[in-house]
């Protein structure tokens, strides 16, 4: 077994590589406590219970998307009977008007990068670029 040295070096390198994210996170300290989110000040209640929103807003958005674009159905009736226009920018971001301090902050923490903003627009950015 002349190759043993080679094999072990390879194994160590391999393990190092696949666990890289763990080391990286430890080193950069991102896996500390959850971020502070800027919640809406004017409203008290989200379109669904906070816990549901936290856990499954992504599924909800996908449903909204398909509902609006493919079924031509734009109204969402919340559990409390309130009606909402199913729109990412025109509804979610109306209340959560600080996308950077809310959606983005949590996503950065969770390490997700929704590609929706390639097309959907954060009104704040438009205002800033105008003025």
């Amino acid at each position: 077994m002349r190759d043993r040295g080679l094999i072990f070096t390879g194994l160590v390198l391999f393990l190092g590589l696949i666990t890289f994210p763990v080391w990286y996170n430890l080193a950069s300290g991102t896996s500390s406590k959850p971020p502070e989110l800027k919640l809406p000040t004017t409203e008290k209640q989200c379109v669904a219970p906070t816990e549901t929103m936290r856990m499954s807003h992504m599924e909800m958005l996908i449903t909204w998307r398909d509902q609006v674009v493919r079924q031509n159905d734009r109204t969402y009736v919340a559990a409390d009977g309130k009606r909402y226009d199913m729109s990412l920018t025109n509804t979610c971001l109306k209340c959560h008007d600080n996308k950077a301090e809310f959606c983005d902050k949590c996503h950065d923490y969770a390490g997700v990068k929704p590609y929706c903003w390639d097309c959907h627009i954060d009104p704040k950015l438009v205002q800033r670029s105008k003025g």
Partner: peptide
Amino acid sequence: ALDPEFPTRTKGVVEKCTFCEERLA
């Protein structure tokens, strides 16, 4: 002039007139 109410598109997709279905709604 970006209008935030309607999403833009990205590179790599096809687009065309939709008879303003979002306004018809």
